[in-house]
Amino acid sequence: MNVKVLYHSSTGNTRKLADAIANVIGVSAEPITKESISFSVPIDLLFIGDGIYFGKPNKNTIAFINQLTPQTVKNVAVFATYGGQGKIGADIKKMFNAKSINIIGEPFVCKGQSWILMNRKHPDKVDIKKASDFAKSMIRQID
C-alpha cells in the first residue's frame, strides 16, 4: 500500500501530529511547500494536515490540494490543529469533497499552541496518542 503523510506547519503544532502519524505507519512526514509535489504512482492513502491561518488553510496547502485528482489520490485522511477556530478539518474535507476524492473517517483535529499562552503545551501527549490512534484506524479502513 502506498501511503504518504504531508503537512503544513508554521508553528510546529501540525508537524507534531504529522510525525506521530508517520511514525505509526512507518513513513516520513513531508512538508507541503511552494514546489509542486508529484506522485509517480497513485497514492492509496494520503494523510494531509494543516493549521488554520486567518480563517483558512495555508495557501500552499490549498494550491497542493487543487492539483490533486481522484486518479492521483485514492483516499484521504485529514488532520489539523487550531488555536481558536476548530473548523479547519471540515474546511479541508470540503476541498476534497469538491474534487470527488474519497475522504475516510472524520478529520482529526486538536488544539495547537497559539500566540504565547493560548492552548499552551498543545498538542500534548494525549493529543499525540489520539493522532496515532487516528492513523491506525484510517489504515484499517483501507486494508
Rank of each mutant, 00 (worst) to 15 (best):
G105E: 06
V76P: 06
P42V: 11
A63K: 15
D91A: 10
K87Q: 13
N102M: 10
N102L: 10
F108D: 03
I88P: 01
Q85A: 12
I43A: 07
P42Q: 12
G83M: 01
I43E: 03
G51M: 08
T81D: 02
K93A: 15
A80N: 06
G51A: 11
P42K: 06
K74N: 14
I62H: 02
E106Y: 00
D91L: 15
P57Y: 02
Y53S: 12
M118T: 13
G51L: 04
A63C: 05
V73S: 09
G105P: 08
L68S: 09
K93F: 01
K87A: 14
Q67W: 03
F64D: 09
P107D: 12
N119C: 04
K59D: 13
G49T: 13
Q71H: 04
V73K: 09
G86P: 04
I43H: 00
I52H: 00
N60F: 02
G83V: 13
P107G: 14
F54E: 07
Q113W: 00
A63W: 01
T61R: 04
Q71S: 07
I116V: 08
I52M: 02
V78K: 02
I88L: 05
N60L: 01
V76R: 05
V78Y: 00
T69A: 05
I104L: 06
I52V: 11
S114E: 09
K59R: 10
M95G: 10
S114A: 14
F108S: 05
N66W: 03
E106K: 15
V76H: 11
G86Q: 12
V78D: 04
I103T: 14
K93W: 01
G49K: 11
M118P: 00
